[in-house]
Design a protein around this nucleic acid. Structure first.
Length: 423
RNA sequence: GGAGAUGUGGCAGAGUGGUCGAUUGCGAUAGUCUUGAAAACUAUUGUACUGCGAGGUACCGGGGGUUCGAAUCCCUCCAUCUCCGCCA
């Protein structure tokens, strides 16, 4: 959520910068400014009345103490006349406050100045490429065929138990999953992240804290009886660890990692995009999360990018890094780098990680602050990234490492799988 | 799930209708003293909104109510503890 102070100070610049995201904020911001002015006027009036009332109330107390009940009763009647106007003002104030908040929720984060213009994924900027795309043999097949050929993943069984998008991993397929999770967690630990295991269901306040609510309500599974949401990413519970927290400057940096399953409804997805492991309703992911001092957050973002590069290089997968253009940038992000690995058998790039700096956008919703040098509270910066999401990594590993009659496991992973190939 | 108890500032812990944003202790920060430290003493020490400022306002788990006035009384939700039931 954009800070209202920023809107008051330089709304014109905000409007300009939001255009990079193809978002026209002019109307919303104009409305907010009008409401905000009105709200403050009302607060001044209301505070004044409350102040008068408080004085009278104290006087009444004193009068009673000194036995002047009659005078006290007169004042009582006078005080009562205040109450109606105070109640009315309070109501107006609350309405305006709510209206402003709802409008603020509609405004996406302001993109970083380096974010390129653009509308579609085609406008994303490739900033780095690594690894050679090797030719496969003529009989190479996509991962869903390999999954059934070597009995690694049973999609139909998942359909029977739950529905489409909930695969059952079996045998070496299951072990590969577990190996990757442990590998990613160990690598994160080596990069200084502390491991946590958070809840997989979160309450409404947490959903609002990281920005999934109210705008992406339909994306999450919702347990209506308890009003809990299944997490679409570990970002939600892990970042909400810091909700309503005031850090000291020596508490920086906060670096956490978590493995969790992720649940996404993916309403509206169809066709070859959802084939096999390409898009699931339940999948595993290791997430890295940082809370940073504003001065250090971009350095931290670079560090996260380096960490993910290391993972993909150890897995020997060809990949590229994209800087997302304004139009493709998520609602809450100021800047995002996507990592894509090349799947030879499908002849397409698969997104396996997304690393973002949210600057103060989430922190403002979370009330995540720190004490600055002057002893004042200031909003911290939050960042997160997938390191990594499993299914497409598995897809790429299976496809890229297939030979006629086996699939080779990259060296770095063998200590975790304890087998060198699938056959 | 049932019954009971409790929820106050970083922590401990007073306060049961009125000068209470809240006694006190510990902790923390600064100062005095000291070669330095400790001890002792002194001062400061929640968050937010609002105002140019002096200041004003709100918040004692969340929400609502009673009252001229609520940390204090009532309702409700949430959390914790104890007992019972059920159970990985």
């Amino acid at each position: 959520m954009i800070e209202i102070a920023k809107i008051r100070n330089n709304h014109q610049e905000l409007i300009e910068r939001l255009r990079i995201k193809n978002f026209d904020a002019e109307k919303i911001i104009t409305d907010i400014l009008v409401f905000d002015k009105k709200k403050r006027e009302i607060q001044m009036k209301s505070d004044e009345l409350l102040s008068k009332k408080n004085t009278l109330t104290k006087e009444i107390g004193n009068l009673y103490k000194s036995g002047k009940a009659e005078e006290a009763n007169k004042l009582k009647a006078e005080t009562l006349t205040f109450n109606d106007s105070i109640a009315t003002l309070k109501e107006e104030f609350n309405t305006l406050d709510k209206d402003i908040l709802e409008l603020l929720y509609l405004i996406p984060n302001v993109p970083n100045s380096s974010v390129p213009k653009g509308k579609t994924p085609e406008d994303n900027e490739t900033i780095y490429e690594h690894g050679e795309i090797v030719e496969l043999n003529k009989n190479a097949v996509p991962h869903w065929e390999l999954a059934s050929k070597y009995d690694l993943i049973d999609f139909d069984l998942g359909v029977k138990i739950t529905g489409a998008g909930f695969p059952v991993y079996k045998g070496k397929g299951a072990k590969l999953q577990r190996a990757l999770i442990n590998f990613f967690l160990d690598e994160a630990e080596n990069s200084g992240y502390e491991e946590v295991i958070p809840p997989l269901l979160v309450n409404e306040a947490s959903g609002y804290g990281t920005g999934q609510l109210p705008d992406k309500e339909g994306q999450m599974y919702h347990s209506t009886v308890d009003n809990f949401y299944l997490i679409p990413t570990a970002e939600v519970p892990v970042t909400n660890i810091f909700r309503d927290v005031i850090l000291r400057k020596e508490d920086f940096p906060q670096k956490l990692t978590a493995y969790t399953p992720c649940f996404r409804r993916e309403a509206g997805s169809y066709g070859k995009d959802v084939r096999g492991l390409n898009r699931l309703h339940q999948f595993d992911k290791v997430e890295i999360v940082q809370v940073q001092h504003p001065d250090d957050s971009y350095k931290a973002l670079d560090g996260m990018v380096e960490h993910i590069k290391g993972l993909l290089e150890k897995l020997e997968l060809p990949y590229r890094i994209l800087k997302l253009c304004g139009g493709d940038l998520g609602f809450t992000a100021a800047i995002t780098y996507d990592f894509e690995v090349y799947s030879i058998a499908q002849d397409k790039w698969l997104e396996v990680s997304s690393v973002s700096n949210f600057e103060t956008y989430q922190a403002n919703r979370l009330k995540l602050r720190f004490k600055n040098k002057e002893g004042k509270t200031e909003l911290a910066h939050t960042l997160n990234g997938s390191a990594l999401a499993l299914p497409r990594i598995v897809a790429a590993l299976l496809e890229n490492n297939q030979t006629e009659n086996e699939i080779n496991i990259p060296k770095a992973l063998v200590p975790y799988t304890r087998f060198k190939s699938i056959n």
